[in-house]
Simulated assay, not measured.
Amino acid sequence: MIPADLSHAVVRAVRRAVEDGELAGDVPERVVVERTRPGGAGEYASPVALQVAKSARREPREVARVLAGRLLADESGIESVEITGPGFLNFTLAPVSAAALVRQIRARGDRYGYAPGADLRGSVVRPAVRRIEESQGIAGAPAPRVAPVARRDGDVVAAYGADAAAWAMLCVPARETPSFTPGLLVQDESSEFFRVRYAHARARALRTNAAGLGFRAEPGDAADGRALLRVLAEYPLVLEAAAHHQAPERLTRHLVAVADALLDFQHLVLPQGDEKPSAAHRARLALAEAAGTVLAGGLALLGMDAPDFL
């Protein structure tokens, strides 16, 4: 199970509990599942029991116990469920299969993560929010209130370029005034904006270099890419949360995490010295290509290009 499947699994658990008479009330169309905050229990958490308790006329912790039991019994991808506080469900997932995840990203392309189914900053933030919402099947939500670019910053598009200026406007919550610094123009890994675009270019370069060595990507076990695998698996969940909260900054943060994981991993992809291409190299290349797909898709949702070369 990848993290994005978790919210659907929780909805199924509520529906089955209602159908079997364990719970009464309404079944939500979707539930919020987010990464657990530092110091919290498990990897992911959801307040769904508090949401369902009102219509079920039960205490939230009672609802949580019912759902926890069903999820552990019916969903093989969940390793453990813990109930904390007034009724929060906290999940730990079983390890994700690298081959299965890469195949899913390949099949969906830049639409991986999509749910089945007038001022300068406003002109950047609102379309990005709309695209992220549309990727999750959300339509008609009120547009977020957007703090404008400060007058002191002047013509930021002319000063930094359209994409770099847009990144600065999107990487902080819409209600906050964005900050523009010379770091946006830096072409090295000290710049998050540069790292995201550079990581995409590196993914493309790895594919080209592998072709020159006579091998292509093939999904398989990539145990040495666990950090990259984790952030790729979380991407659909991040999109869902970004849409729910109208918060494109969640997407920018996650793209940085994907880029950093890919840049740390890239050195393992190609054979070194006299080493011959192996199944492990093909699997690593497939994982790197999947990361490039996610970076391109995320940048497209933000209204930015994903360069093949930098």
Rank of each mutant, 00 (worst) to 15 (best):
M1G: 15
A4P: 02
D5S: 14
H8I: 12
A9L: 13
V14N: 13
V14Q: 13
R15Y: 06
R16C: 09
R16D: 15
A17L: 12
V18L: 09
G21D: 13
A24I: 06
G25K: 06
D26I: 14
V27G: 14
P28M: 06
P28S: 05
R30T: 14
R30M: 07
V33N: 07
E34C: 02
A49H: 03
L50Q: 11
L50T: 09
V52G: 08
A56Y: 07
R57W: 01
R57Q: 13
E59W: 05
P60Y: 04
V63N: 04
R65I: 02
R65N: 07
G69V: 10
D74A: 15
E75K: 12
G77A: 10
E79C: 01
S80N: 14
V81F: 09
E82D: 13
G85M: 07
G85T: 05
P86H: 05
P86W: 05
N90F: 03
N90S: 08
P95C: 11
P95D: 10
R106P: 02
D110A: 06
Y112V: 00
Y112I: 00
R121D: 04
S123E: 14
S123V: 06
R126P: 00
R130P: 04
R130C: 09
E133F: 03
Q136F: 00
G140W: 09
A143M: 10
R145K: 04
V146A: 09
D153S: 13
G154H: 10
A158N: 11
A159K: 15
Y160W: 11
A168L: 06
A174E: 12
R175S: 10
S179C: 02
T181I: 01
T181K: 05
P182H: 00
P182G: 14
G183M: 01
G183L: 11
G183K: 02
L184M: 09
L185Y: 02
V186F: 04
F194K: 08
A199P: 12
A201D: 12
A205P: 01
A205S: 14
L206M: 13
R207N: 07
A211L: 13
L213F: 04
F215R: 12
R216S: 15
A217V: 12
P219S: 00
P219R: 03
D224C: 04
R226P: 01
L228G: 11
L229T: 03
R230K: 15
V231I: 06
V231K: 08
P236G: 15
P236S: 09
L237T: 07
V238A: 08
V238R: 08
R250C: 00
L251I: 07
T252F: 03
L255Y: 03
L255S: 02
V258M: 06
V258Q: 04
V258K: 03
A261R: 15
L263F: 04
L263I: 05
P271T: 11
P277V: 10
S278V: 07
S278Y: 08
A283V: 14
L287C: 03
A288L: 11
A288I: 07
T293V: 07
V294Q: 13
V294Y: 09
A296W: 01
G303A: 04
M304S: 12
A306N: 10
D308N: 14
D308R: 14
